[in-house]
Design a protein around this nucleic acid. Structure first.
Lengths: 227, 227
DNA sequence: CATCAAATCTGACGCCGCATCAGAAAGTCT
DNA sequence: AGACTTTCTGATGCGGCGTCAGATTTGATG
C-alpha cells in the first residue's frame, strides 16, 4: 500500500500544513505570495500550451521572476503541477454532494443521474487544462498524481457505491464499489474526449444522454441473464 | 506551419505509401531496416520508462546508431511515436471481429459482451506502453494522435452502433453512435486504470463484470422512466 | 573486379533549457 | 542606524536537441 506522504494541506480542520520550501524552512508572507503566483501562472500557461511544452523558464518569465526563485519552492516542474492538481482535486469534492442522499429509483433517479453528469461536465469544463494534466500524468504511472486522482474520485465512488447498496440491497450481484468505480471513471473519459465525439459528428448531448442512462442502469442494476 | 505529411499509410486499398525520409527521398532496403529498428527500439524503451523521459539519444543508443541517423527518418521524437501508434492501431482493428455479427440479446448477449471486454483487456495488456502513449498524446490535444485513436476506435464504435441498431430497431431513444462511443470509450479507461482499482482494493474481475453488464445494458437498452 | 555515384551513416558542433550556487537586495527587529 | 533573516537573482556547468559536412557502405556498370 503506497503510503500517502503528501500532507494533504487542503484537509480542513487538520493541524497547520508545514509547507516547507526546498531548503526546509517555512516561508513567510512574501514567500507564500510568490509561491502562489508561480502556481497561478502555471495554471494560466497550462490553458494555452500543452504540458510537455511547458518549461520552467516560461513560468518564471510569466511570473516576472527568475528560475532560481522557482526552485526555491518546487523541486522540479512536476512538483508545481502536483500543487496545481491538489488544488483542483479538493475543489472536486463538492461533486460528492450530487450523489449523496439523492433519489436513484424511477423518474427521480434519471434526474439525479442527469445532475451528476451535468455537474461533472461543468466541473471539467472549468478545470479542463488542470484535469487534463492530472489524467495525463496519472495514466503515465506517476504515483503522486494517481494518488491525487484517486482521492478526487474516491469520494465520489464511495458515495455512489453506498447509494448502489441502498438501492439494490443484498440483491446486487456485482461489487458496488466496482460498479461505482466503472461509472465514475467513465465520466472523465467522456468529458475529456468531448472534442473527439464532435469531430465524428456524434452530437455530444446524445453522449450525455447515454451516460445518464448508463449511470441509471448501473445504480439500479436491471436483471441480466445468467450464464 | 507543420504540414501534415504523414500519408496515413494504414488506409488499406490506397496506393503504396511513399514513406519518404526527411530529405524527401525514398529509402531503400537498408534504410527501411534501420528505420524499423528505431521503431522497435522505441517500443521496447517505452515499456521500461515513461514517455516524457524518453530521449532521442536513448533510442539511438539502443539501436546502436547515431542521433543524426534518427533525424534521417523522423523529424522529431513525436514522429516516431506516431509510427509506433499507427502500427498498434491497425493491429487493433481485429477487435471489430468481436463485435460484428455477434448475438447481443439474452444469455448469448452476455457472452458476447464478455468476449468483447476480455478481448479488449487482452489487447491492452499486450500493447500497454504504446496505447498509454497514444492515449496520453491524444488527450493532450495533438491532432495526429487523436486521429489515430479515433480511427482505431471508430471501427469498433461503428460496428457496435450497427449492432445496437439491429437489436433495438427504431425503438432506441438515444443515438446508437453516441451510446456505442460511450461504451467503447469506457474500455480503454478501465483497462488503463486497472492498477488504480487494485490500489483501492477493488477486485478487477468485479470491474470487468461491471463493464460486461454496462455493455449489455447499453446494447439492449432496458426501458428507463420518462422525465 | 575496379570504378563511381547514390545511399546511408556519423562525429562534431551550436543552441537552449535545466538546476545550482554565491552573493545581492529587501524586509524585520532592536 | 546596525545586525540579522528572508527572499531573490545573475552567472554557470551540464546534458539533450537537431544540423551539417564529410566519411563509409552499397551495388550498378563497363
Amino acid at each position: 500500500m503506497p503510503k500517502s506522504d503528501a500532507p494533504s494541506p487542503s484537509r480542513a480542520g487538520r493541524a497547520a500544513p508545514p509547507l516547507r520550501a526546498v531548503d526546509g524552512r517555512v516561508p513567510g508572507r512574501r514567500g507564500l505570495a510568490t509561491r502562489q503566483r508561480l502556481v497561478e501562472c502555471t495554471i494560466e500557461l497550462l490553458a494555452s500550451s500543452p504540458y510537455r511544452d511547458l518549461k520552467v523558464t516560461d513560468i518564471t518569465r510569466a511570473a516576472g521572476t527568475s528560475p532560481a526563485t522557482f526552485y526555491q519552492y518546487f523541486v522540479d516542474l512536476e512538483t508545481v503541477l502536483l500543487a496545481v492538481a491538489e488544488q483542483t482535486a479538493t475543489d472536486g469534492q463538492q461533486l460528492v454532494e450530487l450523489i449523496k442522499g439523492q433519489q436513484w429509483k424511477g423518474n427521480a433517479g434519471i434526474g439525479s443521474a442527469e445532475r451528476l453528469v451535468d455537474g461533472f461536465i461543468d466541473f471539467w469544463r472549468t478545470h479542463r487544462p488542470t484535469l487534463r494534466v492530472l489524467d495525463l500524468l496519472s495514466t503515465e504511472g506517476d504515483r503522486r498524481f494517481r494518488q491525487i486522482r484517486v482521492v478526487m474520485l474516491n469520494g465520489m465512488t464511495k458515495a455512489l457505491a453506498s447509494e448502489i447498496e441502498a438501492v439494490q440491497g443484498s440483491d446486487c450481484d456485482v461489487d458496488p464499489m466496482a460498479m461505482a468505480g466503472a461509472l465514475i471513471g467513465m465520466l472523465p473519459q467522456m468529458a475529456g474526449h468531448q472534442g473527439g465525439f464532435e469531430a465524428w459528428d456524434i452530437p455530444f448531448d446524445q453522449v450525455r444522454e447515454s451516460m445518464i442512462r448508463l449511470i441509471y442502469w448501473g445504480v439500479n442494476g436491471p436483471k441480466v441473464p445468467k450464464r
